[in-house]
């Protein structure tokens, strides 16, 4: 009887260890998206969509400059202090207003890229975010960056799986992912 109990205990310990192992390398992609450049957001979205098409779970963590890409151009948030208002004016309002990391040429670059993307049948950023939502790609927004930039939740895009969290959540997600990227 005691032997049985001991065996059961050992099995339970093993089960716990196995589930820990299974969770340590999930078929999951985690990207820390920090850059707010149009080309880099594009890269993050294309890789995410390819991963989602491969049935890989995708978790994006948006922080710092990348938050601009998640602003909704039609929304505004009242009651901001002076600095937050200034940040709001200085930073791009939404994914259509992002600049390029190279060859920006005062806005000419993005215009040319958008023209070329259309010509080459590449999905627009808007279409990519829509597909991402349909494919269940999760977007987590860094709460601390929100405060830093003075953005409010009311001015962010409508997205099916949008949540707000801290760096710990990203680290926890990334720790379970077999692919981790920083863009």
């Amino acid at each position: 009887m005691e032997d049985n109990q001991e065996l059961q205990q050992q099995i339970d310990i093993l089960k716990k260890k196995i589930s820990k192992l299974e969770n340590s390398r999930k078929d999951q992609l985690s990207i820390a998206v920090v850059s707010g450049d149009m080309d880099k957001i594009l890269a993050a979205m294309v890789i995410s969509l390819a991963a989602a098409a491969m049935d890989t779970q995708v978790k994006l963590f948006f922080s710092f400059w990348s938050l601009s890409a998640l602003r909704d151009k039609k929304k505004s948030a009242p009651g901001k202090d002076f600095i937050s208002k200034m940040f709001g004016i200085m930073l791009p309002k939404g994914k259509d207003k992002l600049s390029l990391s190279n060859m920006n040429m005062a806005g000419m670059g993005p215009m040319m890229i958008k023209y070329l993307m259309k010509k080459q049948n590449v999905m627009s950023l808007g279409e990519m975010f829509k597909s991402a939502g349909e494919l269940g790609i999760e977007i987590a927004i860094c709460e601390m960056s929100m405060g830093l930039m003075g953005f409010k939740k009311e001015e962010m895009i409508d997205y099916p799986k949008l949540r707000y969290c801290g760096a710990t959540t990203f680290v926890a997600d990334a720790g379970q992912s077999s692919i981790q990227l920083f863009i």
Binding site: V46, A53, V122
Partner: peptide, 13 residues
């Protein structure tokens, strides 16, 4: 045929 990467993959999925 009307879409570039990753369009065909998404269409296939």
């Amino acid at each position: 045929r009307g879409t570039a990467c990753p369009g065909p993959l998404l269409a296939a999925k």
